[in-house]
Design a binder for these strands. Sequence first.
DNA 1: GCACCGTACTTGTCATGATAAGTTCTCTCG
DNA 2: CGAGAGAACTTATCATGACAAGTACGGTGC
Lengths: 250, 250
Amino acid sequence: MDRPLYERIAAEIRHQIASGRLPVGAALPSESQLCEQWGASRGPVRQALAALRAEGIIGGGQGKPPVVRSQAVTQPFETFLSFSRWAHDLGRTPGQRTLEIARRPASPEAAEALRVSEGEPVVELLRLRSLDGTPAMIERTTFIWSVGRLLFDHDCDSGSIFAFLSGQGVDLARGRHVFDAVNADATDSELLEIPPGAALLRERRHTSTTAGEPLEYSDDRYRPDIVSFTIENSQQAARPALLRTQGLVS
Amino acid sequence: MDRPLYERIAAEIRHQIASGRLPVGAALPSESQLCEQWGASRGPVRQALAALRAEGIIGGGQGKPPVVRSQAVTQPFETFLSFSRWAHDLGRTPGQRTLEIARRPASPEAAEALRVSEGEPVVELLRLRSLDGTPAMIERTTFIWSVGRLLFDHDCDSGSIFAFLSGQGVDLARGRHVFDAVNADATDSELLEIPPGAALLRERRHTSTTAGEPLEYSDDRYRPDIVSFTIENSQQAARPALLRTQGLVS
DNA sequence: GCACCGTACTTGTCATGATAAGTTCTCTCG
DNA sequence: CGAGAGAACTTATCATGACAAGTACGGTGC
């Protein structure tokens, strides 16, 4: 038990929520009560609560004791991370063609993004994803070696890589996605069957473990007439719901 | 200046990173130096650094001063509805130039989106938004008459329309945002000072009351080198957090 | 030249205490 | 009985101080 105190407190509360001892909607013990229970000062207690708040599993505000929010649902995360799963839920048929899988020394950008030393081996993957046979997205992914090496023993055209890696015990827990737009280059336009220079929706994805260690990053380019992204929000909900949506042909 | 100290510290550091005074890879001042600069104790300083770390824009570890990871800057979700507020929290100066505000009969599309009869009066607004003087976004908004009419009595160049309307008691509660990409047309390229055909990030926004009655819809086009959008999610969190980020000049 | 080691500096963790500000409840007054 | 004042609670923010643990760097001995 040499983990920091605030981590142990957070873990204990998480456990109580997961086990149902703290049902959804219930108020947590106040900070001072937690301090007594653990014989700790408010510092670690607040740090633990802040971590739980960042994970979205508790809510509350000034003056009000924190309350248990809805149970953790992994669905949205998986749906968002996995193109295959998303397409499947939509009733469409996902397709994938792996154009290249290679072991390479990490480029400076890859080394930065994956926090490895430059020149360390990484695995680069180039895939064309489609919906009902129509090219929809180009995926340029770079994995750290310990994860990417698993892909050489896997038929990448058979289905979801995310599902495969999860099954192999890879801790794909957190994701960061940056969206912007780019003009299609020669490769993009040829593979996606669009004119050169057409605007593409780009998602740059960084996936890491629970502890925040990078596992992969990706540059995904979507045909905007096939795929778009939707956010729904309301002033009540603290966090918005993200959905990947089928592009509108407007 | 009644914002908490740690927010001001974080905003200042974000600003220094965004302005290039702290280039990518540079080491931040040590905690004790920041304490001196701000005349603060380590508490607020650490809270500010923790926030920046959570946003992923700084890295580093025990014993090592934090380093600037990238120029991406993020803001909490509440600022999503308001460009002005987002920019302000970032320590940047938002600008707006209203190019046109007009009362018009609703077009078929407007009637459909706002659920009014075709030909009913609506208010159309065309604004150019900027960050530190650089054109960043073009906003083409259509309001229902009862809301848009308030804008004729308001200096639209003075600040946030969202804040103004909220202050007038307008119930801007729910939003739906669809993201895709488009090529810049002649107007876009001229106003945003980019080449014709450049890829733009488009956000189509529909805002409605708590009851779901449409209030406005908008076609916003962002320069991807100035503004991008970020989603953070984790397997624990039920819903991902949406953040608007400053574009990477990569 | 090179490995080893100790020192100075850094961040990580935690305790204690204080004030401000928000919420909830009760109690009083009309 | 309802509205409002107020007390008692909560969390939010910040200061100060302490120790542990990791890193960077220079010097020392081989």
